[in-house]
C-alpha cells in the first residue's frame, strides 16, 4: 500500500497513513484514544509519555511515527492485560506508591523495563531505571520500594 505503514500497537497489527513526522505521543492520544500516555513536557525530560518500543522504554514525545514502522508499541492500556502488571499494581498499592497518578503509567512501564532486563535489581539499579521518570508527589521512595516488592512477590514472572 502506498503512503502507509504498519506497526503492532498493544498486540494488534495497525495501519497508519498519517504524517511520518507526527509525535507518537500525539497520535496515541488523539488518534487511538490511548490517554494513559501522558504529556508532561514534550522535551524528553519527564517520562510521563513513556511507552515500550520493541522491548525498550522510550519517550513517545521524542519519537516520530516513521520510527515505529514495523515495530511493536506497548502502552499502559496494553500492559494492563498482563500478569506482570497485576504484580506491579498490587505492589504499588501495598505501599501507597500512587498519589496524583500522573507519572504512574510511565513509571509502571519503566518498572517493567527494569524487571525484564534484571529480575532481581538492587535499589540502585531501580533508581537508575526510573531516573528519567519524574514524580512531583511521592519523593520516589515508595515507588522504589514497590518495584522491589513486585520483584519478590512476582518472582518467576520476569
Amino acid at each position: 500500500m502506498a503512503d502507509s505503514m504498519t506497526f503492532i500497537l498493544n498486540g494488534k497489527e495497525t495501519v497508519y497513513s498519517g504524517s511520518a513526522t507526527a509525535r507518537l505521543l500525539d497520535v496515541l492520544r488523539n488518534e487511538y484514544n490511548l490517554t494513559g500516555v501522558k504529556c508532561g513536557c514534550k522535551e524528553g525530560e519527564c517520562g510521563a509519555c513513556s511507552v515500550i518500543l520493541d522491548g525498550r522504554l522510550v519517550n513517545s514525545c521524542m519519537t516520530a511515527m516513521g520510527r515505529v514502522a514495523g515495530s511493536g508499541v506497548v502502552t499502559i492500556e496494553g500492559y494492563r492485560e498482563t500478569e506482570r502488571f497485576k504484580a506491579l499494581d498490587k505492589a504499588y498499592a501495598s505501599v501507597s506508591a500512587v498519589q496524583c497518578g500522573f507519572c504512574i503509567p510511565g513509571m509502571v512501564l519503566a518498572s517493567e523495563c527494569i524487571l525484564s532486563k534484571n529480575a532481581h535489581p538492587t535499589e540502585e539499579e531501580i533508581r537508575e531505571g526510573i531516573s528519567g521518570n519524574l514524580c512531583r508527589c511521592t519523593g520516589y521512595n515508595a515507588i522504589v520500594k514497590a518495584i522491589g516488592i513486585a520483584a519478590k512477590e512476582g518472582d518467576g514472572l520476569w
Binding site: 503512503d3 505503514m5 511520518a20 513526522t21 516520530a64 511515527m65 516513521g66 514502522a69
Partner: peptide
C-alpha cells in the same frame, strides 16, 4: 516504506 512526509 513511503509515508506522507518520510521514508523508511
Amino acid at each position: 516504506t513511503i509515508l506522507a512526509n518520510g521514508f523508511v
